[in-house]
Amino acid sequence: MTANGAADVFLLDGEPIPFAPGQTVMQAALAAGHYIPHLCFHHDFKPHGSCKVCTVRVDGATTASCTLPAQAGMSVECKADDLEENRRTLVQMLFVEGNHFCPSCEKSGNCLLQAVAYDLGVLDADLDYFFPSRPLDASHPDLLLDFNRCILCELCVRASAEVDGKHVFALSGRGIGKHLIVNAESGRLVDTTVAVTDKAVDVCPVGVIIRKRVGFAVPIGRRRFDARPVSAQALEDAPRRAPPEAAP
């Protein structure tokens, strides 16, 4: 808050964005109704900064906006051709590293990776595909784990630890060998304490944690991101700032 009682602001692509102390650039931007493309950020969780899709430029340096503390007077560039191209490349890399066959994925149309790619105008991967071999875990009676679609956002890891208090999920390995694991001696989901009502199940942005027997109850073509692009919907999810009171 400035001396005269007005909220501190920074500039996002030239637009003034008010912010509260402790807010990151991403949190303040979404609260003010400005979309910054993102995958691993979720407003219910502490920012993670791993996917880098939300990278912006401040004073010539690029940094993830979800972990960048907002500061008064800073000038943040988000909508630049080179930044958009980098975002497209990051998304394309995620597509080729896993096995993302959208036509046969139950999450298609509700998938954040797909929706962000649509919004960025990604038509193809333009990189060589890895086609990794990642067997499914269908051991749980109510849940299916399809590791082929994991983007390592750690939202399930964070949700299981912070909200469910269970630590069912974790990432293991390094670099290209990094992968999702579950907390059971057998390595199988059925032997964990996961429940179908867990936040960790709900928060998966892609098609890794799938509820069984739901499938295509809502047909492809009538799903969340079929209707409107993610850039128009992310703002509806964000905790919004109360409208400023009218000046006396």
């Binding site: 066959f101 036509p103 991967a125 086609f131 071999s133």
Partner: peptide, 14 residues
């Protein structure tokens, strides 16, 4: 999809 990422036939790749 098949021209762009192998599609259904590429399900045999593993």
């Amino acid at each position: 999809a098949c021209a762009l990422n192998g599609g259904l036939p590429a399900q045999r790749n593993h």
